[in-house]
Design a protein around this nucleic acid. Structure first.
Lengths: 355, 355
DNA sequence: TTGAAAGCGCTAACAG
DNA sequence: CTGTTAGCGCTTTCAA
């Protein structure tokens, strides 16, 4: 194993000091272009790249953001991951990934803390409040992505789409379609996203004197949603005529089960609506009505929040960001909706009379 | 901003030396349980966690693995990412994510090098040979995940499933079904996975005196695959009666287009087969015949390869691992196949068949 | 088993 | 603009 190339080596070869090398690699540092040129030539010759860890020791910044997720099969989160990582790279930050299996969570937090990350994004996971607090206590900015917590702590913010509004609009949409027996399939019942979506949905129905006709829990998983669908629809009487499913991932399972196992027609027998607007929702096999979460806006807000907190310039009001989404009506609820070619995150063509 | 807690602080509070603190946090270091106890108490009181960057400076190991991907919408890679990250965490490594947009690749490589990662996994990306070589030259173990390179360099290995065999078995499967006009929809035409799958497919057909009837390119994307399907099937005569699609992601697009836009029946009019066995392939809406890539075996091999190269104990023969996959026959090609409930990616046991 | 001391590779403060 | 110096937080000899 050959000696690792250091700034000392480069300095020697270039005939300058280590400081000159350091400055050459620091944008905006005061250094003459000739010196820099000499340094860069030597650096290239030796294949030198500054050591980010050594740098972080001095600067107190690692330029690493810890991202905690617990699963990536939900179709929505891979897109978030990709966009967040790309966006952070633009600012010279990088994502260190932590997959939370909910069993070694304590170890995981310990490891995050060891890497002295400049910030933490908690997405698609339910890290306990205790652990989230631990991170927050360590002076690290924490952003809850698409979830909120009962007790928010110092240096903790949240970004989410307007889940209540989404549930509300879908309720109104079903009512426009004259549906009366309207069911709800929940995600993780204790998650804030689920609660908000359900609350908005209930509110929308209540404004027209309706209540949720039946409920089941799908836990944000395809398999569980399949079972939930059986529970709600595998009978002749008192079958719902519309169902709002708390995520697209589950809604696809619902459509599959209704059509292929229970031989029901969507939307004629049952209207289905989901939440997220994952790419699959617009595929011809599904054409799923859904409330779109604007990923890039959410990512942007996340990055802003992290950077504000790094600079300590976030007021308390700014700490909880709510991004508006929008309803996309497709054929899983309304036959009149145009069959669309696959067009990710484009707004609806067909816009019915809203409530 | 409060002072960052260091081993010095802990040492002071515990009334021991910094070395003692260090040893307390080093498994297997020679330290008495009483001293350790004192240290741990002080550490807990102060919320101390050792600084991984400072440690890496001494040990020369960052315990970070760089993972380079260019997109995560291909359904197969999120699963890889999740499993790889989980597996590495088991050994105390972590994944630093780099999303390659193919425009700032040079900067990206520079950044990878700055983090002094202990290894690099190149998955779902086509980092140029030049850049891959640059990483390899920096003495960093590189594993090509699901791709190979014309010229392999020192400290570079590869892991892939048996793409040729997969193509071969799908050809044989179509021939069993008495199909004669057999088409191929390619992924990225310059990718090694695509070439291998195509080669195996051609070989299988050739053994029965057949050639590929028609070809189009889908570039591993849903949209391009849709267009490719039109190109091959949007006509009355000389329409293929079977099509092998180089990835499931594209195959789902093909099925959607055949059924919903071209009004053709799958499998009666056209048999479809894909590659990967993503979760969606087993969903009732598709029931896609496919060649399963055993993700966990591939991940395990990747980790082994990285660690072997870290220890410098890899012989040249071990450097290129080929993992066998297996054909899964579903209703997109054969009506007689049983309708399956969704069964997520089952993997074969790890069997390091080398060549 | 323990502590003192040296130094990993780098940047920042200070002179010049 | 440039070099010298100190030290970031840690591990690792080396003595004791």
């Amino acid at each position: 194993m050959s000696h690792l190339v250091t700034s000392f080596d480069v300095a020697s070869l270039a005939g300058v000091s280590q400081s000159a090398v350091s400055r050459s690699f620091t944008p905006g540092a005061s250094i003459s272009s000739q010196t820099r040129e000499k340094v860069m030539q030597a650096a290239n010759k030796l294949g030198y790249q500054p050591n980010a860890h050594a740098r972080s020791l001095i600067t107190g910044r690692s330029r690493i953001i810890g991202l905690v997720v617990s699963y990536l099969d939900n179709l929505f989160y891979p897109a978030v991951l990709e966009q967040l990582s790309k966006r952070l790279q633009l600012d010279g930050f990088h994502v260190l990934l932590f997959v939370n299996d909910h069993v070694n969570s304590d170890d995981m937090v310990r490891e995050i803390l060891q890497y002295k990350v400049d910030g933490i994004v908690l997405g698609a996971t339910t890290l306990s409040s205790r652990l989230a607090k631990q991170c927050s206590d360590a002076q690290i900015p924490v952003v809850l992505f698409n979830r909120i917590m009962a007790k928010t702590h110092a240096s903790m913010g949240s970004v989410r789409s307007d889940n209540r509004q989404g549930g509300y609009e879908i309720a109104k949409h079903f009512l426009n379609l004259k549906r009366k027996k309207i069911a709800y399939i929940a995600g993780r019942i204790d998650s804030s996203t689920n609660l908000d979506r359900e609350q908005g949905f209930i509110t929308g129905l209540a404004e027209n004197g309706l209540q949720i006709f039946a409920t089941a829990t799908g836990n944000y998983s395809y398999e569980k949603a399949t079972k939930a669908t059986y529970a709600l629809f595998n009978k002749k009487r008192d079958r719902p005529d519309a169902v709002f499913v708390a995520s697209d991932q589950m809604a696809l399972a619902v459509m599959d089960t209704l059509r292929h196992h229970l031989k029901l027609k969507v939307p004629q027998d049952v209207c289905v609506a989901g939440f997220d607007n994952v790419p699959q929702a617009s595929w011809p096999a599904y054409q799923l009505t859904t409330y779109a979460q604007p990923i890039s806006a959410m990512v942007e807000a996340t990055v802003q929040l992290l950077q504000n907190q790094l600079l300590g310039s976030a007021t308390l009001q700014d700490r909880n960001v709510l991004i508006p989404g929008h309803l996309i009506i497709r054929q899983s609820s309304d036959m009149r909706a145009q069959l669309q070619l696959h067009s990710p995150t484009i707004t609806t063509c067909y816009n019915p009379t809203q409530h």
